[in-house]
Computed example of a mutant assay.
Amino acid sequence: MKLVSGQKAPSFVTKDIFGNTIDLNQIPSEKILLSFFRYAECAMCNLQIAKMMKHKDLFAQKGIQLIAVFESPADSLKSSIANRHQFDFPIIADTNRELYDLYKVNPSWLKTLRTMSVKGMQHLNEATKKGFKAGGKVEGTLHQIPADFLIGKDKIIQIAHYGNSVIDHLPLEEIF
C-alpha cells in the first residue's frame, strides 16, 4: 500500500555514496525532499537533478534538504552524478532496494510506456541536448518509476507523489 500525506515517514539509517551516515530522524532541516530515481546514467533522471540544482538556493532558503535515492552502485553515482552536477545533497546508492521497498516505490511497465508520449520525447530531447546520454548503462530496474516525498520537520509526509511515468516528479513549484 502506497504511503500518503499525513502519515509518519518511515525512518531509516543508511550511508550516502561517500560513506556518510544518513539518519532521517537526525536531519534538522525544516523539510526533506526524498526523491527516488532510476539509475545513474538515466538521462531523464540527470535532467531532473539538473533542474533541482538550478534551484539549490531556493531549496536552502526554504529550509528543504534534498536526498536522492538511486539503484546504481556508489561508484557509478560518483562518476555519473557527483562529477557531472554541482550538488550539495546526499545521494544514496540503494542497490538492494531497501528504501524503495520501505517507501513502496515500485517499477511499472505500463507507466514506463506512458513515457513514450510527446511530452516524454520532448523531455528526452532536452536531456540529450544538455549532454545526458540516452540509453545509458542500466544499473537497476529499467521500468522503475520515480517518487518524491516532502517530509516535514516532524517527519510527517506532507506530500507523497508517486510518478505516472519515468519523467513524472513532484513539480518544483509545488515543493516551494
Rank of each mutant, 00 (worst) to 15 (best):
M1I: 00
M1S: 04
K2G: 03
V4W: 01
V4Q: 03
K8M: 00
T14E: 01
D16R: 01
D16P: 02
D16T: 09
D16S: 04
I17F: 01
G19Q: 12
N20W: 06
N20M: 02
T21A: 01
I22T: 09
N25A: 15
N25E: 15
Q26T: 15
P28I: 05
P28G: 02
E30N: 06
K31G: 05
K31T: 06
S35C: 13
F36L: 02
F37E: 14
R38I: 07
Y39V: 04
A40S: 00
C42E: 03
M44Q: 11
M44D: 04
Q48G: 10
I49C: 14
K51P: 01
K56L: 00
L58V: 14
L58F: 14
F59K: 03
K62W: 10
G63T: 06
I64H: 02
Q65T: 12
L66Q: 03
I67V: 15
I67Q: 07
I67C: 09
I67H: 12
V69L: 10
E71A: 08
E71L: 05
E71H: 03
S72Q: 00
A74V: 02
S76F: 02
S76D: 05
L77T: 11
K78E: 06
S79V: 13
I81A: 01
N83W: 04
P90I: 14
P90N: 15
I92M: 13
N96H: 12
N96T: 09
R97K: 09
R97T: 11
Y100V: 09
K104E: 08
S108M: 08
S108V: 05
S108R: 07
S108D: 13
W109F: 15
K111R: 14
T112S: 15
T112L: 10
L113M: 12
R114V: 04
T115E: 03
S117R: 09
S117M: 14
V118H: 09
K119I: 10
K119R: 04
Q122R: 13
H123N: 13
H123S: 02
L124V: 11
E126F: 11
K130V: 03
K130H: 14
G131Y: 09
G131D: 07
G131I: 10
K133H: 06
A134L: 04
G135S: 06
G135W: 08
K137E: 07
H143K: 11
I145W: 01
I145R: 00
P146D: 01
P146V: 00
L150A: 09
K153R: 14
K153L: 07
K153M: 08
I157N: 05
I157C: 06
I157F: 10
Q158T: 11
I159M: 05
I159Y: 01
I159E: 11
I159A: 07
A160T: 13
H161Q: 11
H161N: 07
H161S: 11
Y162D: 09
N164V: 00
N164A: 10
S165F: 06
V166R: 13
D168M: 05
D168E: 12
H169P: 04
L170E: 00
P171F: 07
P171Y: 05
L172A: 12
L172S: 08
E173F: 11
E173A: 15
I175W: 00
I175G: 03
F176I: 03
